[in-house]
Design a protein around this nucleic acid. Sequence first.
RNA 1: GGGCGCAUAGUGUAGUGGAUAUCACGCUGGCCUUCUAAGCCGGCAACCGGGGUUCGAAUCCCCGUGUGCCCGCCA
Length: 584
Amino acid sequence: MKLLIDKIKPFFEKVFGSLGLDSKEYEFLIQTPRDTNVCDVCIPCFSLAKIMKENPVKIAENIANEFNLLLQKEINVKALNGYVNFSSDSRWIAKKLLFENYSFFKESQKLKILIEHTSANPNGPFHVGRARNAILGDALVRLNRDLGNEVIAEYYVDDMGKQVGILSWALENISRKEVNDILEHNGIDNLNPIWKQKEDHVRVRWYQAANILRKEKPEIEDELAEIIRKSEEGDEKVLLQFNNAFQPILDGMLETLAKLGIKYDSFTNESKFIIDGSVNKIVKNLEKSDLYGEAENGAKFLELAEKGVSGKSTKFFFQRSDGSSLYATRDLAYHQWKWSQSEKLINVLGEDHRLQSKQVSVALNELNIKCPEVIFYAFIKLPEGKMSTRKGNVVFMDDLILEAEEIALKILSERKGELNKDEVFKIAKAVASSAIRFNILKVSPEKGFTFKWEDALSFDADSAPFIMYSHARSCSINKKVKSLELIEDNFDISEIDINDSTSRLLRTILRYEDAIEKSISENKPNHFCNYMLELSTSYNLFYRDSPIIKNGELNAFNYKVSEYSRKLIHRGCNALGIIPLESM
RNA sequence: GGGCGCAUAGUGUAGUGGAUAUCACGCUGGCCUUCUAAGCCGGCAACCGGGGUUCGAAUCCCCGUGUGCCCGCCA
């Protein structure tokens, strides 16, 4: 409700000045109420009671009276239960939105932001748990872009070290037949033939087989250690070999994410920071820290016991005894580099990285490098327990998407319609991808949840299709108006009678800015999900009560409101990665 | 053993010091000759337990309970 707050601020200064209060100090009191049906903006007077030594109900009444002397009739001010409640005239809102092109985020500061998300090790297909990262990250990218920020979506590629090393070794040393035999003996399902062309599904089997083989033949460890060591020294030949091993997997993973509308602007390889020497510089600088310590064998660490880290080990190791670097050290160099690209950093990490992220923050402080904002999300479990790529106990995102498309197709086939096959297929894909994203986004990131097929595939009221359906309706109306070539009569907004549901819709539209800003400032896309559900509900009520075409004639005001809503729902869908279809 | 998350109707969720605790599923009763019924309207039902701070606590603090994650010279 920025529009209204900006409107009343100058009067607020006068009123509070006349009460002998510093208006700047109390500006924060102007707020949007929890229950938006009560009023548009309010000032709770409870905290003033102590200073003014008076009953908050009385204070509210006095303040309301003062405002009423100053404000024109387009803002209604009333005192209620110790609150000063402001309600704007619906015609005034309509005028600002429909005729004066009030635009959102005009005064917001625009930033260059780098959002690093997903960054999953390229060793196998996405399962639903890992995908939460990508879906959250992509939503943050889109929300920030909606506000006008310039955003880089970053994927940090683990192209060295143990995991890729194992994969690379497996592809060179284990035959297809051996892989199949090993996995069969260990109860891992066969490759689903649907995915036999998709290298993430194919190659992960080598990774799984190698992990089983390592337990049986310890001598493999020596071979592994050798190539891993070389990769960490930046050996070009080994890194190229690693790259050839994981790149087809990464491509397969990105193909899956693309089905969900997720794309990246930039990929950065971990090895970059070994090769360019920045890791070495980080090590040198960390050695100067007061927290620096060395183990007996020469491994280097920071002692974090005094920095709020506790547990069995309080040491943060950044160099092994053999002189090689660790993931965390490279991460420090990576952060330094990221700051050279942007003014704000956001990382999306699983809750298992909480400690590691704290260690990185302390180390960054020691290096005089700013810390990123980090958003943590809890894991998605299966009813039978944790998901694990190695154990093959997962729901693949590719399978979930396929299943969702089939259900959408089934629903479409049950409904009468004159859509052709291509359109039906396109709609099913859009519904599936949007619904999956939304069902994950609508839950607050720090809350864990258990994956259930029926919830993930729910297309009911609390879902993306609900929002998409409102949009499709508004499109349908627009098409009808166009096809009937109805004429938009001129009208005087001050003469229009605005009903309750239209008034509610106009107010909901006005809260778009607040919803985006809240979601961004807290890095919680679920807030905006909620808002989009409210916007759609408001539109549905308006649709019920306010005919746009009646007896073959166009209601120009209702049409303008509908069109404004249509464009805003479209915009909001893009901000969440929901595909706003024109018909469904 | 220690640290860090989380706990709201039968189920899932919103809410980060204020007005009658949000929305959905569920159960239940209604609305399609009228701009897409994947919709709309009505009813049922909840703040883990105990202390504290405050004029006021689901929200902040302490203790407990349950649950998840972490405590590698892995990533």
